[in-house]
Design a protein around this nucleic acid. Structure first.
Lengths: 249, 249
DNA sequence: GGCAGGATGTGTACTGAGTACACTATGGTC
DNA sequence: GACCATAGTGTACTCAGTACACATCCTGCC
């Protein structure tokens, strides 16, 4: 699906993918203390939506969302978690039509991509700087938005963002370990700031550190983070017991 | 879908429903202190599975699972909660073939019902005595099984049961209010036994009562439950603040 | 070289939820 | 009326979470 051939794209879609089913990814990033979400703009319509795509016939939905995310953003090895499936009766996928038209793709009015689509929602936390944010076949642009400033989204994607946010906040301890939001070693204040950004509230330093250590999530390293114009901080890494076996991808 | 007409059933399915998508319901009941699960047997194969069905084109997935449950069991007004979507690449739906054959329905080998199907899982708690347990077009028999004694299930349905169980146990306070597992008024020991059955462990009476009252879930009524060969117990009902507005369906 | 500023490191006390636990009260049965 | 089974009730402990203040270290400026 790299070459946007107007004629065959739709045929390939029908042949390769499950109809009426899509996956969407709510990708959160943290930058400068603000929570961001990755959105794409449908060419032609100027409307914004979550990255998403269709599921190939021999591919699990978990694999599908990873592949789609990679195709759209270059992000790989991201831990995506399913949080909800959206299956309202008329989700208004018709906005897809103008986007496809803008690419010279004519879709019969009764084609399923314009009709009812059930979507499985996934959520992930990623490093803003590592996402190759580039337009693709399906999107004229792709960029990070501050969560609070995001434009209105198509269909029920605003609902997806809300639910995804609740989901990541409730699983933050688990989720951060698998992400590349932090370098292999990090300081406690860095970790705390990340938590604060995701949770949207400030935390007490002493309680935070105590909790991280009591939960056995991180272990202190002998090195200090030098070269900053303040007191150097200890560095930490995820402890072996929680670290994913293969480091990261 | 009430009349099992072999010729048209499959055609109707294709016309009316979304292909490659199904819903499954994990229905738990409590009886005699044991947790039960409602399973159906595919005619001809002797294999057991969760009740499930397909989603109509203009119907939300939430509505679909309610409808399917009603068609198979006569249960209505049940609160079904989505807990996970199962989308493995090869879920082995081929077992469906023999069941259909047993009904004289010939399915082309490449039809989607025999191939890859993504399934949205829902869970509910219901009163065992209120389910009309009767065979239907798709099932030669339908019955309650003690959770621990259940037969092996097709495809990934065992996984569904496991996840559903985790889900109901974590939401038990919420879920019980909407069910008809208890009469409009009930005693504290009755409520406790129900919790114990679902959680699969015993609870301390004093702590249990304190918690229910502190959470404001129930309110005590002036009446006592008489006519039993022991000390009469106070009766309770769900407090107005948690009770669903329309009583029950 | 000394001092001010800013961020880091640390421990104790309080609160609330959950848990462990024993005795009294009541009604029915024999 | 004695026995039995079950229901009603309160206190003490533990753990997690939260509130909170002061000493330390480095940098940069004077």
């Amino acid at each position: 699906m790299n070459a946007p051939d107007p004629g065959t794209l739709l045929a390939e879609l029908d042949r390769e993918c499950l109809p009426h089913l899509s996956v969407n990814a709510v990708i959160f990033g943290a930058h400068d203390g603000a929570l961001q979400v990755l959105l794409m703009e449908s060419a032609g319509t100027g409307t914004w939506s979550l990255p998403g795509g269709y599921v190939r016939r021999a591919e699990s939905i978990d694999d599908a969302v990873s592949r789609v995310l990679f195709e759209l953003t270059g992000l790989a090895g991201t831990t995506l978690r399913q949080f909800h499936t959206f299956g309202g009766p008329a989700r208004g996928e018709a906005v897809v039509a103008s986007a496809l038209h803008a690419h010279g793709i004519d879709v019969p009015a009764d084609h399923w991509v314009l009709g009812r689509v059930v979507s499985v929602g996934y959520v992930a936390l990623v490093d803003v700087s590592q996402a190759r944010v580039a337009p693709s076949v399906w999107a004229s642009s792709l960029r990070w938005w501050h969560l609070a400033d995001r434009p209105p989204l198509i269909i029920d994607h605003d609902d997806m963002v809300q639910r995804a946010l609740v989901s990541v906040r409730s699983q933050i301890d688990d989720l951060l370990i698998d992400t590349n939001l932090l370098p292999p070693t990090f300081t406690m204040p860095e970790l705390q700031r990340l938590h604060e950004t995701i949770l949207g509230r400030s935390l007490d330093r002493r309680n935070f550190q105590k909790r991280m250590l009591e939960l056995g999530l991180v272990e202190r390293l002998p090195d200090l983070r030098q070269g900053v114009r303040r007191k150097p901080a200890y560095t930490y890494r995820w402890s072996a017991s929680v670290r994913p076996t293969g480091e990261s991808a």
